[in-house]
Design a protein around this nucleic acid. Structure first.
Lengths: 222, 222, 222, 222
DNA sequence: CATGAATGAGCCTTCATTCAT
DNA sequence: TATGAATGAAGGCTCATTCAT
C-alpha cells in the first residue's frame, strides 16, 4: 500500500506539471486528479492545497535541472556544448519558467521550507559547477556568475507567440546561439554591470529586497 | 458625452494593462473596473468580454513598440544604441510579454481582425527598419531578421523569480548586454539555423503551422 | 412634435407586443427600444417601467377584442360564425394569452387603473353582446356566460409544443371546432356546473378571492 | 452515498417542477436549490444547466401522464370517465403546460435524447390507448387522433387570469365539460379538418416543419 | 425631447476544499 | 485509504433604470 501511495503521488505530480504548463497554474484541481487517474480526495490527501502542488512541481523541476547538468557534464566534450545543451533542455522542458518554478510569492512562502531550499541550492550549485567548467574551457566570459545563467534560464523565448508555432524550432535555435555568442568572451565587449555573486543570491533568502526593485505582485494561487 | 466615453475607454485600457501585468490576465473584471474608476457595466459596454480587453491591450502594446522605435531612431546616435534602447524599453514595459500581447490562441482569434493585423504589421515594420539601420551600422549580424528580434523581445528575463527582486536591475542590464553581444557580428560565430524572413511571418496568418511545432495549448481567457 | 411623440409611443407599443409574444415578457427593454427604432431613454419617457408597458399592451389587446367582435358582428351571417371567427382571431392574435394580457398580479396592480378597467369592461361587454346573439340564434347553450367564453379565450391550444409547428393549423382548426361543438346546445348534455355570471366577474375587482382558489404566484416583471 | 445522491436528485426535481410552475422557468437556480434543501453546487452537479433541469421535469411530466392514464384506465368505469379524469388531472397538475413540458426549442434540443424521446412515445401511446377505449365505448368521435387529445392537453384554461382565482374551479369544470361535449359523437357535427395521425406526429421528429407553420420563437432558457 | 452612456444589483456558473461513505 | 458528493464563496456577465449631454 505504501507503494500504491507513492505511485499515486507520482502520477499526480506528473499530471500537475503537465497541466500547469499546458493550461496554466489555475487549472482545476479536479482536472489534475482526473489526469492522474485518482479522485480529488486522493489528490488533497497528498497535497493539502494548490500551493503544495506548485511547490512540489518546483522542487521536481529543480531536481531535473541537476539531472540535466549531471548528464551534460558527463556526456558533453566541453564547457560550451555542456552549457548549450543544458540551456536548450531548460527551455525545452520549461524548467526555468517563472511559473510555477520560482514565483516571487512562492519564494516568500518557501523561505523556511527545508526541502525546497535544499533543492534550490543543489540546482544553483550544479549550474555553478557547469559554469566553472565553461570558464575553464574559455567558453564564456570570466565575469559571469550563476545568477546570470539562471537569469538567462528564465528568459525563455516564445516565438510561437509571434508565429503560432511556425518556425519555432529554428527561431529557438537561433536565439540560443545568439545568447551563447553573447556569453562567449569578446575582446570588444564593454564592461558589464557588476556581477551578482552566489553569496548575494543566497542572501536573498534572509534579507528582504529593497523596495525599489520589488517584483510585481503575483496572482494568488488560491 | 462622447468625450467622456472616450476618456473612460482609455482609463479602462490603462487599468487593464497594468492589472494584467501585475496580477495576471485572470484578474477579476471588477477590479479592472474599479481601478479605472468606472462600474463593471461600463467596462462591459466598451469591451464585451475579457478577450476584447486582451486584444485592445495587445494592440496598445504594439502601438507602443512603434512609438518606442520611432523615438529611438530619432534620438539615438547609431543602430547599436537604438536597438539596445528599444529592447530595454520592451523589457521594461513588458511589451513583448507573451501574455497578453500575442498568445497563440489570441492570434487564432485575431486572424481576421483588421485593426489587430494592422497594428501587428506596423510593429513588425518598425522593428524591421530599426534592424536595417543596425545592419547598416555594422552593429549586428547580417543574417538576422525581424523574427529574431521579436523572438528576443519575447524572452524577457525575470531575475526577480530567482532573487525576489534583489539585484534585478543589474541582472537585467547584464542579460541585455549579453544578448546584444550575441547579436553583434562575430568572425568566430558558427552559422546559424536558416533565418526566418518577414514574408514567412506574414504567411503565418494565412497558412496553418505544421503540427510538429504547434504551441502548447493555452489557458482560455474566458 | 406632439405627433412625433404619438408616433413613437405607437411604435414602442407595437414592438413591445410583438416581442412579448415572440420572446417572452422578460425581453430586454433595450431590444424593445431598438425594435421600435428609438433609444431606451425615449421608451422610459413614455412608459416609466416594464409594468406600464405590459399594461398598455393589455389595454391594446382588449381594444382589439372589441374591434374583432365589432367586425364579426357586422360581417358574419349568424351567431355561430361570429363566435367562431372571434375565437379564431383571439387565438391567432393571442389576445387571450395569460401573458401579458391578464396576469393575476397585473390584475392586482390595475384594480384602480381607470383606463385599464374601462378597457376590460368594454371587452367583456362586447363579448357578452356576441354571446347574446349566439344564444338568440340557438348556436350555443343558454346557460353560458361571458366568463365561459373568456375562459375559453385563455385556453389557447399550442400544438406546436407537441409537433413543432407541424400540422398546427389543422390541429388548431380541429380544436376550435371541438370547442364550438361543445358550446352548442345538446339535448343529451349533462347539466354543467353553475355558470359564472358577469356580476361575479365584476365583483372580483372589489372583493378578494378566497384563498383556496388563489392563482399561483407569478413571476415579478421587475 | 449513492442513495443520498439519488434522494437529492429527486428533491431537486420536485422543487424545480413546483417553482417552474409557480414562478416561471426563469426562477433563480439558487431558489430551486434552497427549496430542495441543497446547495447550488449540488444542483449543478446533477443538472449541468437550466435546460437539463427543464428536460428532466418534462420527462417527469410525461411519466406522470402515463401514470394518470394507467390509473384512470384501471379505476374508471368507461371511456368517457377515463378521458374526463385524465384531462382534468392534466390540467390540475399542469402536465400539458407548454412550459416546461414541450417547448418548441426544447423539442429541437431533445431530438436525439433517447430518454426524452422514449418518455414522449410512452406518453403518446398511453393517451392513444385511452382514446381507443373511448372510441370503443362510443364516448368520442371516431375521427379523433391522439394529436387532438394532446392539443387539448396544451389548451389549459386559466380563468384566474380573468378572475384572480375567483370561481376558478367552476369555470375549469365547465370548460372541461364543454370540451368533452365537443369530443362526443354528434350526428349534427360538421365534418372536421383532416385528422392528424400518430404517424404524422412521429414524423415530426425526423422531418422539419414547413416554414408556414413554424411556432413563434421562444425565450431562451439560458 | 431624444439619446445612449453609466451604474450596480442580481443571477448563473465554476471550483477549491471538506467530509461522509 | 480512496472516492466523489456537497458546499458556498467568488467571479462573469446582463440588464433595468437613471441621468448627463
Amino acid at each position: 500500500m505504501r507503494s500504491d501511495a507513492a505511485r499515486n503521488r507520482d502520477r499526480i505530480l506528473r499530471a500537475a506539471r503537465e497541466l500547469f504548463l499546458a493550461r496554466g497554474t489555475q487549472v482545476p484541481m479536479e482536472e489534475i486528479a482526473e489526469a492522474a487517474g485518482v479522485g480529488v480526495g486522493t489528490l488533497y490527501r497528498r497535497f493539502p492545497d494548490r500551493f503544495a502542488l506548485l511547490k512540489a512541481v518546483a522542487i521536481w523541476n529543480m531536481g531535473r535541472v541537476v539531472a540535466e547538468v549531471t548528464a551534460a557534464m558527463a556526456e558533453e566534450p566541453d564547457g560550451h556544448h555542456c552549457l548549450a545543451r543544458v540551456l536548450r533542455r531548460i527551455y525545452e522542458l520549461r524548467l526555468g519558467d517563472p511559473v510555477p518554478i520560482l514565483l516571487p510569492h512562492l519564494l516568500e512562502k518557501t523561505r523556511d521550507d527545508a526541502e525546497f531550499q535544499q533543492a534550490r541550492r543543489d540546482a544553483a550549485q550544479a549550474v555553478d559547477s557547469m559554469l566553472d567548467r565553461a570558464k575553464s574551457d574559455g567558453a564564456v566570459r570570466q565575469d559571469l556568475t550563476v545568477a546570470d545563467i539562471l537569469t538567462i534560464a528564465t528568459a525563455r523565448p516564445e516565438p510561437s507567440a509571434l508565429l503560432g508555432g511556425y518556425a519555432a524550432e529554428r527561431l529557438n535555435a537561433r536565439y540560443l546561439q545568439i545568447v551563447l555568442d553573447g556569453l562567449s568572451p569578446h575582446p570588444r565587449s564593454e564592461p558589464m554591470a557588476p556581477a551578482v555573486e552566489e553569496a548575494e543570491m543566497e542572501a536573498r533568502f534572509t534579507e528582504v529586497a529593497p523596495d525599489s526593485v520589488r517584483p510585481a505582485p503575483q496572482p494568488e494561487h488560491t
